[in-house]
Design a protein around this nucleic acid. Sequence first.
DNA 1: GTTCTTGCAAACGCTTTGCACCAGT
DNA 2: ACTGGTGCAAAGCGTTTGCAAGAAC
Lengths: 167, 167
Amino acid sequence: METVEPRHARRSQVETLRAAGLRITGPRLAILRLLQHDTNHPTAEQVFRRLRSRYPSLSLATVYNTLTAFARRGLCRRVPPFEGPQRFDGMLDPHHHALCTGCGRLFDVPVEVYGLPPPPAELGDGLSVHGVQLTFQVLCASCQAEAAGGGDRGKADHTVQPTHEEV
Amino acid sequence: METVEPRHARRSQVETLRAAGLRITGPRLAILRLLQHDTNHPTAEQVFRRLRSRYPSLSLATVYNTLTAFARRGLCRRVPPFEGPQRFDGMLDPHHHALCTGCGRLFDVPVEVYGLPPPPAELGDGLSVHGVQLTFQVLCASCQAEAAGGGDRGKADHTVQPTHEEV
DNA sequence: GTTCTTGCAAACGCTTTGCACCAGT
DNA sequence: ACTGGTGCAAAGCGTTTGCAAGAAC
């Protein structure tokens, strides 16, 4: 999918980097652009692979360094993995995640689909809240079909007890 | 803290293992017991270290294998880490987690403190929900004190955008 | 007796780091 | 000119795996 990017988009990326106090370099622009367009929550390796063709000199270490720098300054989020490598999310608007326990694919869930009550500022014992992460464990359509047809390969952990309760 | 364990507890552990289709062995009983008593969400390494004194022949690989077997059969939960090693939770009743982004400590949050509306069975695109994980990002009392006094060491990622929205 | 588990060591995957060179400011 | 980023290779950490000996069934 060859996305032609409007000029204003690139301009805003430059400004984003500058505002974060980061120098404007090829790798950073490329990675930032990819993160903003890729809704698949890529791993560092996937970012690397997808940029290597256009950017042959790019190194994996630079991808890691850059993603770490971005996460530290709020240009992207780390998505805590239930297993396997860390994944990165360039979508900064509030949203939840849905992880397919069959194939490992990670989906975005808009807050319109499931609204959370505002979290308390304090949880007791002096725990002050500054963020919330909600992840659904799901089975995606294709994995449901596979489970119904082929049968279980027994890879995944036992279905977790939901964290919720009908209160 | 030398917990003397009532006989019925050990008996129920044996039954738990048997019901899960696992053989009753020393390492498994010890690890299961530790998980049920430790509310600190230990890593595999911590489990290993805490059992090694009483169980000198225990190996780290066995701890990993056992924890994996437990998680697969629902005897414990894996807690997805925002960074660092995987952590394990023997508390199976529904509850949330609160991760201190300063020191990495992980706290349990009872559902009485923050109730979640029941999750939809379907999220759209054929995603069928079978679990939910909610994690608060918090600053614990001691890390708040440290931040107020000492100042930021700049270790952690930028405070994440909360996933919620006042809906 | 058969099957599963253990413990050791080695391999593995993911991520970070040290360092010399180069580019952005 | 100075500071910080890049790319490479190597090290690091956390976890899994192959295998022989032993324990549970």
